[in-house]
Amino acid sequence: MLKEQATFTQSQKMMIFILSMSLYGLSNMFTELIPSVQLGPIELQIDCFAFIPLALCMLFHPFYAAIGAATGEIIFGELMLGQFGGIGEIEKFILFSVGMIVGGLLVRNPKSKAQVAVGAILGYGLFLVLSTIVDILKVVIGVEEFEAVPGLAESIFIVEGVEFLTDLLLTGTLFTVLPALYLVPRLYGKVEPLLGLKPRTATNFRVSDVITPKFLVMSALLSLLAFGIALLSEMDFNIGSWEPEFVDTYGIGVIWGVICVAVICVCITLWLMMKKGREDSHDLS
């Protein structure tokens, strides 16, 4: 006789992942399409349907529901529509997952409206806070001598602050808390058996099941990474600034020489590429 399931099997995790990925992915395609309204400096737009991953995080294993949703956004909302933003997406992936996981962990009894509301607003709010901090950090890193520019710091804080508030008020209430309140109690006890799972109760759901040592190590590594990037900028690390001794020792002539060689290389490469390209198209026809 096999034991009654208390933990999630590998395939159940995969089911949660796929469910969350496809649904949040689909909703993301819609939010990409819904136009935004500009009211003076304030932009009103539906950021995302965070209620979907939040509802799933509250009902199932938060970790897999959250990374499923974040993956869904990358695949449906970005890759398939040809809008993948590269590295920036990875940062959103991490922050969004963290927010959703926390939102899901806060709910022990999905039937309690209060817990669902608190979980939803704190989960989404955490995501917003984190991404606002990262956005500000980006400007701090990107602008040379950030502090030296008068008024810049204040304006950045205001712009980001306003964006944070509109997102929290519009998306946070209309598209996060209210829908989560509608969905979670309705789905509770109905959707779990479809995946062969038992509904979450205060007794069978322990935060320690989700926050495993592996999870902690992973988050520690990721925070270190984020911290490292921030540190780099503080260290006055500048790629273009290794030149003085070099120029002093060899003189400007050497640099001109380097440029000439490089230009010749570029020309030869271009010629080769054109030739190759023509051959290829010839082969095709």
């Binding site: 006789m1 096999l2 034991k3 009654e4 399931q5 099997t9 395939s11 062969g196």
Partner: peptide, 10 residues
């Protein structure tokens, strides 16, 4: 059954 559907199996 029984690997995927965990239940009482004999």
């Amino acid at each position: 059954i029984p690997h995927f559907y965990v239940g009482d199996y004999t």
